[in-house]
């Protein structure tokens, strides 16, 4: 948003020196105003963002997400009704049916991408953010946050959302599709997780951990 200020403040000592993660160019980033983003001069990668109240906002979205995740997995997402038979579908039952049909690998892919990784992301993020908020960072905070960073791309709930949509349209002609309570929770969960991603600022978290490292030495 404010590319010019990068040039202006190049000699400002209080500014933050960063190497671009995508092209390795060293550049100093001035103190950002709220809602300002700093981009790399050479390749346009986002170097830093500054969001007002990032910690509180991301914590509230993470907690909301966790509650919604619980509800979304408690009841059926969709129910199929045909020939007086009904069939319920939840995230876990999907993985289980695949396992029963002798497709253990496919079942594991489902289980990890749509249940385990999203659950760990939400639980872990709430835990790390609470530690920072209450000033209780310990030696395990850094490895945990590192783990969350690496597993983040493997949580694929938003893709499952799209898949549910496709499935509903596909089955619409053949059978009666009933939306469960969990489906609404699931939609809100995707929204909460998107906002969490947007507001979570890893830079702030690493800064807190850096400070802890300095103090504990």
């Amino acid at each position: 948003m404010n590319r010019n200020r990068l040039h202006h403040n190049q000699k400002n000592k209080s500014s933050n020196v960063r190497a671009c993660p995508d092209c390795d160019l060293l550049q100093s980033i001035p103190l950002l105003l709220p809602n300002e983003f700093a981009y790399c001069l050479r390749c346009n990668a986002t170097l830093l963002k500054n969001q007002k109240n990032s910690l509180n906002r991301s914590l509230s979205f993470a907690v909301t997400g966790l509650i919604l995740f619980f509800i979304a997995n408690l009841f059926p997402l969709i129910t199929l009704k045909a020939l007086s038979l009904t069939q319920n579908g939840t995230v876990l039952s999907t993985a289980w049916v695949l396992f029963e049909m002798d497709r253990p690998l496919l079942s594991l892919v489902m289980l990890f991408t749509t249940f385990i990784f999203p659950a760990l992301t939400l639980l872990g993020t709430v835990y790390v953010l609470l530690q920072i908020k209450t000033n209780r960072i310990n030696d395990y905070t850094a490895p945990l946050f590192r783990f969350l960073h690496h597993t983040h791309i493997w949580g694929m709930l938003e893709i499952l959302m799209l898949a549910i949509l496709v499935t509903v349209v596909k089955l619409g002609d053949l059978a009666e599709v009933i939306f469960g309570v969990s489906l609404y929770a699931f939609c809100l969960l995707i929204l909460a997780m998107t906002l969490l991603d947007y507001y979570l600022n890893p830079h702030d978290i690493w800064n807190s951990i850096r400070q802890y490292n300095r103090e504990s030495k």
Binding site: I78, L80, A82, L83, L85, Q87, G89, S93, T94, A95, V97, L98, M101, L106, V109, M110, T113, T114, M156, I159, L160, L162, A163, I164, V166, T167, K170, L171
Partner: peptide, 18 residues
């Protein structure tokens, strides 16, 4: 996002069991 087709198959399998 390519995973969408895999998920659709998984959901169809779980739902269409009559």
């Amino acid at each position: 996002w390519s995973m969408v087709d895999v998920f659709v198959i998984a959901l169809l399998v779980a739902l269409v069991q009559f």
